[in-house]
Design a protein around this nucleic acid. Structure first.
Lengths: 123, 123
DNA sequence: CCTACATATGAACAACTATTCATATATTAT
DNA sequence: ATAATATATGAATAGTTGTTCATATGTAGG
């Protein structure tokens, strides 16, 4: 399958490879991890999460804030819910959304730190 | 464009909306942020980054470790490089990759924390 | 210079995803 | 019960993305 055979001297870093292989998260968890970040990896969802950093909001509020349809927002909120990134509180007809747990805020903030450095590097 | 007009009583949380709107990161930065997480949001790239947590590795090593073609790995390494998530050290014909900065490790670890809680919730 | 090897990259195709549109569910008020 | 509003969801489509294949670049040695 893979053209690893091209590596003629494949003993070169075999000890490193073996070490890393033993310590590497198995495929199940790395897939889960990728899936988590994939959920963060969308403009709309990021803006929703950023909106919820400060206050809980209902679908209607978020739609208005991001100038998008209720349907689009609701679809994305489902994705966020499924990943436990937001939680809900129902009050009458309205559903209020807020961040799921502290990880969400931390991940967003470190991400912001990273891109801020990147933006500075560009200058 | 958006069917926000459905919100008849759209003064309902207008103060909240206004507050969040003022504190919300502008579109330029939230797009950058989403782009950053999008790069984390792929199985192959996550496994590459996890591999590099412990040791620097060359393309050949990573290919062997993940059992994928050099080409596939190299393409993904470019994506990671462009986002400053990995850095390179050239030694002869080989190019050694390592994590770009501390943010990468932190983001991975918090991600792992989150999915571990999630996995526990499932039981 | 020529060969071999390590890595990089362009193009194309298959697989995936976000939004839209239509419709359904749930809650409240009349 | 009916109407009105808020939210949710299924299907379809347009746009995006990861891998493969072919090829190019860069480096070391003969």
């Amino acid at each position: 399958m893979a053209d690893n055979l091209e590596c003629e001297i494949n003993n070169l870093h075999e000890d490193n490879i073996e070490y890393v292989r033993e310590n590497l998260l198995d495929n199940y968890y790395s897939s889960k991890l990728a899936l988590l970040f994939k959920v963060f990896g969308d403009d709309t969802r990021v803006r929703i999460l950023l909106s919820l950093l400060n206050k809980e909001l209902c679908v209607c509020d978020i739609s208005s804030l991001l100038n998008m349809t209720h349907s689009a927002i609701s679809h994305q909120l489902k994705v966020l819910r499924d990943m436990n990134l937001v939680k809900t509180r129902k009050d009458g007809k309205e559903v209020y959304y807020s961040l799921g747990d502290d990880h969400v805020e931390v991940i967003l903030n470190i991400g912001i730190e990273h891109i801020m450095e990147e933006v500075n590097d560009e200058n």
